[in-house]
Design a protein around this nucleic acid. Structure first.
Lengths: 355, 355
DNA sequence: CCATATTACGTAAACGTTTACGTAACAATA
DNA sequence: TATTGTTACGTAAACGTTTACGTAATATGG
């Protein structure tokens, strides 16, 4: 087989016509005779002509590539986000170039530079934890490359943002614990620096207050690394408290698993003695014992939404229309399993029971 | 700020010299005067010149993009593979365009087409389970685009391949169970169609034979979907067998977790009554109760290796050298945790104890 | 001082495609 | 029949960069 793909030139020469005529025939332009068009289409089919995307990119100054920078690919939430982005982008004829920042600002900077050279049409980015300066992103915007922030966002720049409603998710989780009859509800959280953790804490507090339950500071525990190990020992502390909790709302699924292990080792029953609910609905959550109730974040849908926003902005820029920056707060949903509802409980509507 | 990036033309005009001279200065070519070179470099710095990658691609007919097709991004093994690929590619100045086949042949075909148009320099692919025809990949090779297969490979084409030593991993896992004193070792496997599962079964059988243990067909159980649920019920079957196992080697971590849950529900102790070992070392494996021993696949390293292979082939093709196709079989390693060794056991060398 | 080599540039062409513009051939209209 | 309009093409230029080639100016050698 020939080394290069079929080009317009090849078709033009074989038919004895000019290159632009071939281009017009294939792109369904108006200035083209019916007979010529048929001949071109037939030959293009025969030679398996596929336009060279790079030449088109180069000519149109549009690459149909969306850049994507993610702190950690190996993370249940983010891999779902990526999956949603790639699938949605493909629908609109865009490809996705993926870069991993490893939560490192320098690396993020480098990715941005590479992308700029590569002439991406737009960027979707979840900021690394060490990024406290977004001049590199503002620089992209200055060069008419739209930037959409997802999940890990910032107020340091004006851009469209997609987050999920951590506050409401936490409120719902806490409310659920109250509704199954729990009154001493503990909260295991991370460091309260990231916005997401702070919002989850707010939701927990507000739900307790809304139902007239007292806030007991002794029922609040911190796990800086939100790890299973930290949570295991913090839960042990909770269990030894003179007013031990009858439920725990954990800010992440790993901490929830730590709590479960501690409770079981302590000889208590879940959910009868202590109910546990997590946040993020990791894939592992459904297969541990007992299966963990959790707050599902619409990761995949967040990715899809981000693609639609960035493509909108790309199109608006192309037509020199003003861009309206939007912030989307996506809804979470409760996934109820045995760690809060036991084996058989009648559920209200709008609530998923995956037992 | 200006709309477009600085071009060679901008620098040339400001200095009153020609475009190729600027190009030569920036690319450290020989035909260039020292004084001119300094002026160009200074101005390029000032104007923040960054070469337009697409123009270079177009000119050189080389994109410095590696295409990557993966069945499922949301999968612990694959997301590690992707991470390795992206990190390694970046070291060599390559970007990675990611596509997800969703285990669907049609989708894989479409990704290949898109990539071909996009002029990727090489492709790394893990075949979808429904792919039984690789003409689309051979087509890429015919167009001088190297293809490297990773993990899910095939014999239907000649190409470099990267797999991990499933046989040896399974053998080691089984041998470990024998060495901690187990004699009735069961195996929970998937359907024996994929090469990987078949190899793990072979390793199990050979280890038993090597140590003079009998193969009891009743200790072999199948889980077609390799799910936790299937494994839970298959394990129950095993426990009710009149000669119940004192250890189970599971072909995947999710099935191992199903086994653990079944054993605990049955009131037996792990590992004293029954030891359990899995395969793949998922992130969840370390945080369940008890922590699961498993066979670690060098996912990240497999990704790195794939990048090096594909770049080698790209470079060889550029210089019209013949390509030597290589098959790399990467080593697995045992990760021992409490599900096989209890709390404190002296380990032999070369074995990782993550307790 | 003439022939040759070297240095440091400029010119032109190329990569594959699209688009603005020009125009020949023909048809429609007054 | 002269004018205008329409159709269906071809020509040229452009996107940003690199490279083959040509050449003027200077240096080197005998």
């Amino acid at each position: 087989m020939s080394k290069h793909n079929t080009r317009l030139k090849d078709i033009a020469e074989k038919l004895g016509i000019s290159i632009p005529t071939v281009s017009r025939a294939l792109n369904n332009k108006s200035d083209i005779g019916e007979a010529t068009k048929r001949k071109v289409l037939a030959l293009a089919e025969e030679l398996q002509y596929e336009p060279n995307q790079f030449a088109i990119t180069f000519k149109n100054q549009q690459s149909y590539i969306i850049g994507l920078i993610i702190p950690q690919i190996v993370h249940h939430f983010f891999s779902n986000v990526i999956s949603g982005i790639i699938t949605e982008a493909e629908k609109f004829g865009y490809s996705v170039m993926l870069f991993q920042s490893n939560e490192n600002y320098e690396s993020e900077l480098k990715g941005t530079k590479t992308f700029k050279k590569t002439m991406i049409d737009g960027l979707i980015i979840s900021l690394s934890d060490t990024t406290h300066n977004v001049d590199h992103l503002i620089g992209l915007q200055d060069h008419k490359i739209p930037v959409v922030l997802i999940d890990k966002v910032t107020d340091m720049m004006t851009a469209s943002k997609i987050v999920c409603d951590d506050y409401k998710g936490a409120y719902d989780a806490t409310e659920h614990l109250i509704k199954v009859g729990k009154k001493q509800i503990a909260h295991i959280t991370g460091s309260l620096t990231p916005m997401t953790t702070k919002e989850r804490y707010r939701g927990y507090v507000d739900a307790l207050e809304a139902y007239g339950l007292k806030i007991d500071k002794n029922l609040l525990k911190y796990c800086d690394l939100v790890s299973e190990k930290e949570s295991y020992s913090q839960t042990k502390d909770l269990l030894n408290y003179l007013n031990p909790p009858d439920a725990i709302f954990c800010a992440t699924d790993p901490t929830a698993i730590g709590a479960i292990n501690a409770i079981k080792d302590h000889g208590l029953k879940i959910p009868e003695d202590i109910a546990v609910i997590g946040f993020s609905n990791w894939s592992m959550s459904s297969i541990i014992d007992p299966p963990l109730s959790s707050v599902m974040q619409p990761d995949y849908e967040m990715g899809q939404k981000a693609v639609r926003l960035v493509i909108d902005e790309i199109n608006n820029l192309k037509e020199d229309k003003p861009i309206k920056f939007k912030t989307h707060i996506m809804k979470t949903s409760l996934i109820l399993r045995e760690s809060t509802i036991g084996k058989k409980i009648d559920l209200g509507k709008g609530v998923v029971n995956l037992l």
